[in-house]
């Protein structure tokens, strides 16, 4: 154990070089709330730890000229929760990030770490999928972008190639009348792992849903984008028939496991229930987000 190296990279280039030099034994350190637990249990045994928290781009939240946002991969949940404009534009994303762990965990845990740890139950990921977030990746061959839903490839696995790291997550601009929400079911009220998590983002115009995306977590090897659920919502007034159809699409997308937190039948049913509830919250937020709309 004592030959572990720790590098506090000052730039993305330095971080990429340190990861390459570590030859597959490198681990990026953001908040460490997954990595340090895994190192202690012996599940991870990195040769080099590359801390990215000295790199500005990874630690900033920036409002983009087009109205979107860029969230640095290692920005903590506590800092994300205090960003008023971000919370106003993307309340669902922010509430999902803020559900991660306790206040102590929030002081360090990042959305980038949540995504890169690639747990199927990661709370921020269904909300980011619903939001249409893009993952900005830096590596030996420069920069590339992938949609969040294409990032995880299996439990604990993702599409990062050797030497690559996540720089930031970008959220698109918000048309008027948009809202998002994230709901999870856990057996306790705090500090537990999601049995099901559902993120919904939608846009309403004159009461009709003109755009929607649905992200579903903890019910398959990776977080899912459920296009059939979105299709059921788009063009509807979010009436009962449309909600039932969308809920059924969520249940149909489930490929869950049986475990002590929930059976397959339970998770499948709850996925639909949470879809309806999250849609109702997103719709309420969308209505209060229209100039002259309900407040």
């Amino acid at each position: 154990m004592s030959d572990i190296r720790y590098v506090a990279a000052e730039s993305l280039d330095e971080a990429v070089k340190a990861m390459l030099a570590a030859g597959g034994q490198g681990k990026i350190l953001a908040g460490g709330t997954d990595l340090l637990v895994q190192m202690r249990s012996g599940a991870q045994n990195p040769g080099t730890i590359v801390d990215v928290k000295k790199i500005d781009e990874v630690m900033q939240i920036v409002e983009l000229p087009d109205g979107g946002f860029r969230i640095g991969a290692a920005v903590s949940g506590a800092v994300i929760g205090e960003h008023r404009k971000l919370a106003a534009a993307w309340p669902g994303v922010v509430e999902a990030v803020n559900l991660i762990g306790s206040k102590q965990v929030q002081g360090r845990a990042s959305a980038g770490g949540n995504l890169c740890n690639s747990s199927p139950a990661a709370d921020s990921v269904p909300a980011l999928v619903a939001a249409g977030a893009k993952v900005v990746i830096q590596g030996p061959n420069g920069r590339r972008e992938v949609p969040v839903e294409a990032f995880p490839t299996g439990p604990g696995r993702n599409c990062l190639a050797p030497g690559e790291l996540v720089v930031s997550l970008t959220l698109p601009p918000r048309p008027p009348g948009s809202g998002d929400a994230y709901l999870r079911l856990i057996p306790r009220t705090e500090m537990d792992i999601a049995v099901v998590g559902v993120g919904v983002s939608l846009t309403l115009k004159d009461g009709v849903c003109t755009a929607a995306r649905v992200g579903l977590g903890a019910v398959a090897p990776t977080v899912l984008l459920v296009e059939d659920a979105a299709k059921a919502l788009i063009g509807s007034k979010l009436d009962d028939a449309a909600l039932e159809k969308a809920a059924a699409a969520c249940s149909a997308a489930c490929k869950p496991i049986n475990d002590k937190r929930g059976t397959i039948a339970y998770r499948t049913k709850i996925a639909g229930v949470l879809l309806k509830r999250a849609t109702a919250i997103a719709a309420r937020r969308a209505t209060s987000n229209v100039p002259g709309g309900m407040h």
Partner: peptide
């Protein structure tokens, strides 16, 4: 030692964190 109990709580630049989940080098 795994972030669950909070007995190791400290602040870093005013932020509440678990000191068991932070490297000393940081």
């Amino acid at each position: 030692g795994s972030g669950d109990c909070g007995a190791c709580s400290i602040t870093v630049d005013g932020r509440l964190v678990c000191s068991c989940l932070m490297l000393a080098a940081e």
